[in-house]
Design a protein around this nucleic acid. Sequence first.
DNA 1: ATATTTGTTCTACGTTTGTAGAGAATAATC
DNA 2: GATTATTCTCTACAAACGTAGAACAAATAT
Lengths: 121, 121
Amino acid sequence: MQLTKTEEDLMNYLWKLEKAFMKDLLEAYPEPKPANTTVATLLKRMTDKGFIAYNLFGNSREYYPLVKKKDYFSKHVNGLIKHFFNDSSSQFASFFIKETNLSKKELEELRAIIDTEIKNK
Amino acid sequence: MQLTKTEEDLMNYLWKLEKAFMKDLLEAYPEPKPANTTVATLLKRMTDKGFIAYNLFGNSREYYPLVKKKDYFSKHVNGLIKHFFNDSSSQFASFFIKETNLSKKELEELRAIIDTEIKNK
DNA sequence: ATATTTGTTCTACGTTTGTAGAGAATAATC
DNA sequence: GATTATTCTCTACAAACGTAGAACAAATAT
């Protein structure tokens, strides 16, 4: 199952905080903050979907992510690639490099990274 | 406004065909094909959302995309980047290079592309 | 001990999405 | 001219989403 956009937002706060009580998450939101029951609902749904879990402290819960941001994100990008580029990562990568306006400096950094990767193969 | 996943699928067929009657789109689907009314509904919604338009031929319509795949996709990736990488394309790019398992050959091709890009700056 | 804060579950309601039937109009074919 | 193919609109309906009130419970502060 998938997180919705709204749930993803919340997940992002949780990833940032690593673990958090509802209060902390509410605080993380910019104004206008959603009702606390809204966040509670989202947390419940996300728990049901298996993306987060919690430890009980008294009667309230300290939530934490069950999925690493990295992994979640990878799956996302893969889906995108599958969808738009016939499942070819390199096709996507070259598209991305050409279309995104990276600066010269950024491109050079990227090349350095690629060189390292090539060496590791 | 945004296309949903199902609408995106249909959009992909349309991008591939460049222009098409409903019949052609239906044919593009793999088995089990959706009911034609389903596709009709999607086409209507996509028209309302402003992603496609059509030319009338008799009483039926030849649909065509109003958005280029490239542009649509770019917006998508940008959204993703904004969402997950604090709006930093290069941060995303390096993440992607490291996480995706590109072959040596693919990496080398990519480096060539980057070199070209750097020269053009 | 009372009031306040924090958090939980249940319920709810309008909107969007996925899917498609019914009915009607036009076009093509026999 | 009657039959068939095409497809458009209207209507529908269940599931998922976004949002939040009501009611209640435990913890904390005064």
